[in-house]
Amino acid sequence: MPGTLYLIPNTLGPTEAAPHALSHILPEQVQDIASKLEYFVAENAKTARAFLKLVAIDHPLARPLQEIQIAELNVNTPPQALAALLAPLLEGRDAGLVSEAGVPAVADPGADLVRLAHQHGVPVRPLVGPSSLLLAVMASGLNGQSFAFNGYLPTDAGQRTKRIQQLEQRSRSEKQTQLLIETPYRNGAMLEALITSCQPGTLVCVATDLSLTTETVRTQTAAKWKAQLASGQAPDFHKKPTVFLFLAQS
């Protein structure tokens, strides 16, 4: 009988190590399940240990942290290594899949392990927690009935402009909200590319540090963003996790 693969959400950024620090982010049941697991697959072992330390404040871990097995699965993990990551589950052990931030397997290499689990009949159980993408859609005021996540755009300026214009045309024809993310230190370049490439009336949302005390969400036309940046009023989003959304107007 295989074990269960629990998809355990992480915080979306630094969280103070204090009693009930996770209470506004993760349900008690999620923390309780995480505290009982002895095997984790994580995008980053150091980040996973920091997360488990927060869990342990209110939910003592099943084993001392140094005895809990944490295997890494990230963009550098070769496909042939997935079988070894799944092996403990096939032997009957439960496991937790933890992302660097937010929910695992969404914009996250953990999706490959989830797919392999399904192929081998391993039960997969997603747990409730923060998703920066859904929080951004909720707060943007853009179309929440139809939206698409496009991940990272090309870093080459010309290719990026072409891709934005393609997505804007799709947004206009399908009335679909488009979501993007960028490496945090390139947030400024991404916003500049959006307001330069999009039509003036296209609505652009910048959602930064979602669920954190420094959270900001702002939606306005590309033209208004352009005027704001021209006056030196750039968003406070340098090196901060940010989701970009836009919706073209007919």
Rank of each mutant, 00 (worst) to 15 (best):
T161I: 12
S140H: 04
S171G: 03
A189R: 12
L133H: 00
S35P: 14
Q66E: 15
L203K: 07
I33G: 02
R218Y: 02
V55Q: 02
N44P: 13
Q169Y: 05
A222L: 02
D58K: 07
V124K: 08
Q169L: 14
R160G: 07
E28F: 00
Q80I: 11
V41G: 12
N74Q: 04
A117V: 10
H238I: 13
K224S: 15
A42Y: 11
Q159D: 14
S173P: 00
A48T: 02
S231V: 01
S99R: 06
K226Q: 15
F147T: 07
F51S: 01
A207T: 07
P235D: 08
V137L: 06
R186D: 06
H120T: 00
L89W: 10
A48Q: 03
L89P: 03
I57N: 02
P104V: 05
Q228S: 08
N150K: 15
I8K: 10
T183E: 08
A222I: 05
L54A: 05
A234W: 14
E215K: 01
E28D: 15
V137E: 03
T242H: 09
V106F: 06
G13C: 14
A227G: 11
P78Q: 03
K53S: 14
P64M: 15
S99A: 10
P27L: 13
L203P: 02
A222F: 06
P241L: 05
P88T: 11
G129I: 06
I8C: 06
W225A: 08
T216D: 06
Q169G: 06
E16P: 02
V137G: 07
L142A: 03
A189P: 00
A207E: 07
G232Y: 12
L86S: 09
N187A: 01
P154N: 10
A136C: 04
L180A: 07
R170L: 13
F237W: 02
T219P: 09
H238L: 14
A18Q: 11
W225C: 04
V217M: 08
Q119H: 12
G129K: 12
R160I: 10
E38V: 10
P14C: 00
V122R: 04
A45S: 15
A189K: 12
L127H: 01
R125Q: 14
